[in-house]
Design a protein around this nucleic acid. Structure first.
Lengths: 121, 121
DNA sequence: TGAACATTTGAACAACTATTCAAATATTCA
DNA sequence: TGAATATTTGAATAGTTGTTCAAATGTTCA
């Protein structure tokens, strides 16, 4: 059902064709979204920002993020399940750290974006 | 209420201090999250991926994204309100395009991330 | 102006998600 | 082993959000 009335049909068809050629499968798109979804919560973002400064246990993360230990633990599981953070037992504590450098880059880009357009948003 | 029993208290305190020094305000963190939130939906991601190939109207976007025109329009409003896409009237049509290069970079990074670790997630 | 096309909007519903509290599981050490 | 510390888990709830359908708004052109 092509839109026969769209005035820019010809110009669009090129874009449409390129878009359809390079199109990712629906599941691939969902996997991409997952990365953003995981970073789309402020508690999780605070956790990631904190861990970018160094390894920490749940208790200290809760302190930095101004959240409950339980809440932080729940969010850490999501970060862990999605390969964003890594865990390491050290005695009674569990040490959390950033697992993936792409995440650092994305967060840094978001900070840049914020300082560029943040004032106007 | 410092955790007096955490065995790595001293090491953590450095991380905690750095984290607290560079800490963003809660509203700034929320603004950062907003960017990720906007890209965290598969319909919106498909729209952005399509527009990265060229300008298009709502109808063609709906075709490429395999969604309804109304649904795409709703999501375009969110992208527009968050400075991700730009609009331009052209006769009866409204042409949408990517407004912000940071978004391109972030999406590209996510694609890279997907091809690196996507298989294992 | 009115008919046809193109896009947006609003309301309603269903699905998802973050948070909280209480309870369970690990780990260490006396 | 049992007490103390540290973290995780499950269930419940409240808030958010994407989709759908119908109706409204814009735009062009005869």
């Amino acid at each position: 059902m092509p839109n026969m009335y769209c005035e820019r049909e010809k110009e669009h068809l090129q874009s449409v064709q390129r878009a359809k050629e390079g199109v990712l499968s629906h599941t691939d798109v969902q996997k991409m979204c997952k990365i953003f979804q995981v970073l789309a919560d402020s508690t999780r973002m605070k956790i990631v920002l904190a861990l970018m400064k160094g390894e920490m246990c749940v208790y200290h993360l809760a302190e930095v993020c101004d959240a409950t230990v339980s809440g932080v633990s729940h969010q850490l599981r999501i970060l862990r399940d999605n390969g964003i953070v890594r865990t390491r037992r050290f005695g009674k504590n569990v040490e959390y750290s950033i697992a993936d450098d792409h995440v650092r880059e994305m967060v840094d880009l978001a900070v840049t974006h914020l300082s560029c357009v943040g004032a106007t948003l």
